[in-house]
Design a protein around this nucleic acid. Sequence first.
DNA 1: CTGAAAGCGCTTACAG
DNA 2: CTGAAAGCGCTTACAG
Lengths: 343, 343
Amino acid sequence: MTMNATGGRRRPPTIHDVAREAGVSRGTVSRVLNGGHYVSPAAEEAVNAAIRKTGYVVNRHARSLITGRSDSVGFLLTEPQERFFEDPNFNVLLRGCTQALAAHDIPLLLMLAGTPDERRRIMRYITAGHVDGVLLVSSHSGDPVADELRDAGVPLVACGKPIGRASKMSYVAADDRDGARDMVRHLLSLGRRRVGTVTGPLDTPGGVERLAGYREVLAGEGIEVDERLIASGDYSRAGGEAAATRLLAQAPDLDAVFVASDLMAQGVLTALHRADRRVPQDIAVGGFDDSPAALSARPELTTVRQPWDRISAEMVRVLLAQIGGEDPAAVILPTELVIRGSA
Amino acid sequence: MTMNATGGRRRPPTIHDVAREAGVSRGTVSRVLNGGHYVSPAAEEAVNAAIRKTGYVVNRHARSLITGRSDSVGFLLTEPQERFFEDPNFNVLLRGCTQALAAHDIPLLLMLAGTPDERRRIMRYITAGHVDGVLLVSSHSGDPVADELRDAGVPLVACGKPIGRASKMSYVAADDRDGARDMVRHLLSLGRRRVGTVTGPLDTPGGVERLAGYREVLAGEGIEVDERLIASGDYSRAGGEAAATRLLAQAPDLDAVFVASDLMAQGVLTALHRADRRVPQDIAVGGFDDSPAALSARPELTTVRQPWDRISAEMVRVLLAQIGGEDPAAVILPTELVIRGSA
DNA sequence: CTGAAAGCGCTTACAG
DNA sequence: CTGAAAGCGCTTACAG
C-alpha cells in the first residue's frame, strides 16, 4: 500500500492552459481574473468558459509573490492559553471572524501567543508579511503586541477599545458602559437596594467601563456608592467565585450583584450557593456577554448581550478596508439586556 | 492622521541582499537555508552572519511557488458549528495542534465546514494545494469529506478511527474500549449492580467502542445486559439530559451510569438533580474525556482521561510524516481513569 | 482592447 | 563546494 503526497494530485492547470484553451494571451486571462477591466466581452466570455472547462484555480503563491500580499489574515490571541479555552467569548469571536472572512474567500490563520517566546516568533512571522492584517484579541492594555504591530505598519483591528491609544488604532467594541447601565437599572427596578458589582480587570476596557456604568446609575439615583460593594475579578470563573466570597464578607446585606462577565457570574453562583443564598430570591445576579456560559448556569443568567456576530463581522470589514488603504476606524455597537432566571 | 497598508513596512531584504552581504551567490544562500548541504563551513558562517545582519526572513510565497508546497496545514472541522463551541474537546485539540505545528514553524489554517456549501468551497481550496495536509476533526463516519480528501491524494490524519476505512487512512485515537472497561469496572467495584450507560452516536467510533467496553465488562462479570439500562445520546449536554430521563423511566432502580462524554454527563447530572437523585450516593456517574466540562460539573466528574496533548502531538507528527512521503499510520493511545466526586 | 516581455524571490539541476 | 541560469505561475506597465 503506497501513498505519497503527490498520490492522486494531478498537475493543476495554469493560466497558460486557460489562455491556450481560450485562444488569448496570458495577460488577457489575468485581466479577466482581476476584475475584467480592459477586456472585450467576447474575450471575457471565452476565458470564463476556458476556466470552467479546465477547472483552473489561481495559484495564490504566484499571485502573492508579485502583489506582495498574502490574501490571508491572522487571528491573534495574546491571552494565556487557559483563558482562550475557558472563556466561550473567544470561541464565538473566532467562529464569527472565520465565517466573515470565508465570505471573501480569505483564510484565517489562528495564532496563539500566550508566552513572550511565542509572541516573538509570531511577531516575526507577521511582520515578514505572511499575513495582510491582524485581528487582535486581547483584553489587557498592557499588551505590547498591539503597539509593535502598529509601529510595524501592519493593518490591525482590536476587539475592544485599546486603552490609551484608541485614536491611532482600529477597534470594534460593544458599548460596555451603556450595557452596564442597563443592567444596574434593571437590578434597581427589581427593588434591590444593596447592589454590588464584580468588575473585570481594571486594565481592560470592560473592567473600567462596566464599573463606570455601575457608578453612573447609582449616582443618578442618588445612591452613594459603598466601596465594600465592589470587588474586582479577572474574568475567570474562579476569580468570580473569590470576588463573591469577599463581597459576602464585606457586605452581608448584599441583595444583588452585577458581574462583569458571564463566566465570572458562574463562579459567583457557586459562591452564593455555598453560602446558602438563593438566586434570585435572596440575591439577584446579572452577568455580561450573553456567552454560552449564561445558558449553562443555574439559574440561567440575566445578562447583557454583546452582539458577537456583528462584532466579528465589523472587525473583518474594518480590517479589509484598512488593508485596502483606508484609515483606521472605531466601531461601537449597542448591547441588549437579556432577562432570564437569575435576576 | 494617515496610515495605510504600507505605512511602516520597509521592503524586506531578499536572498539577493544576503548574498551580497555575505559575498557569495544566491544559490549558496539558498543551500544554507535548505539544510546547509554542499556548503563550506566558511560560506555557511558568512551567510548566517549576513542573515542576522539583514534580518532576512524567507519569502514563503516564492519558495512555495517553486517547491509546490504551501508549508501550512489545515485544521478541518466538519461538525456543525454549535458542536465546536459546545464541546471543549475541540478546543483542547485545536490548541494542541496549533502548538505542535508552531514548533515546526508551520501555521495552522482553521477551516470550519459545517454546511454542505462550506464543505464544497473548502474542498476546492484544499485540493487546489493551498495546504499541504489536513488534520480532520469529525466524529461521524458518514462524513464524505474524508473519502474525498483521500481520493484527491491530500495527506490526511483523522482524530478518531474512521469507521470502515481505517486501513487506508491515518488516524490517532484513544483506546476507547479499554477506557470504557476501566470505568465500568470502577463502578462495579463501588458495589453498584444496576449500571446503565449513555452512549455516543452509534455511527461514531466513540459511540460504538465505549458501548462495547461496557458490554464486555458486564459479560465478564456474568451480569446479563439489560437493554433498558442503555440509552443513546449525541454528545451534547441536552442529549445527555434526555437520555438520563429515559433511563430513569425505563430502569428506576439504576444505581450508576457510565456516560460516553463529559459534556453529556453534565446533562445527566442535571436530569438526576431534577429527579432528586443524589450523586454519587444514589447514582454514581462516570464520564469520558476529562475535558474542562469534567471540572465544571457538580460534583466534579469521575471520568476517563483522553490524552489530548499526546493525541494532538501525534496527529501532527503523523501528518508531517505523511506529507514527507511516508505511508499512513494508526496510533492508539491509552486512557487513564480519573477519580473525583461523582463516582 | 490585447500581446510580448519583464520580473516578483526563490530553488535546483547543470557545469565546473 | 560554488556560480550562472532556468523557471515556478502569475501580474503589470509598455507598446501597439
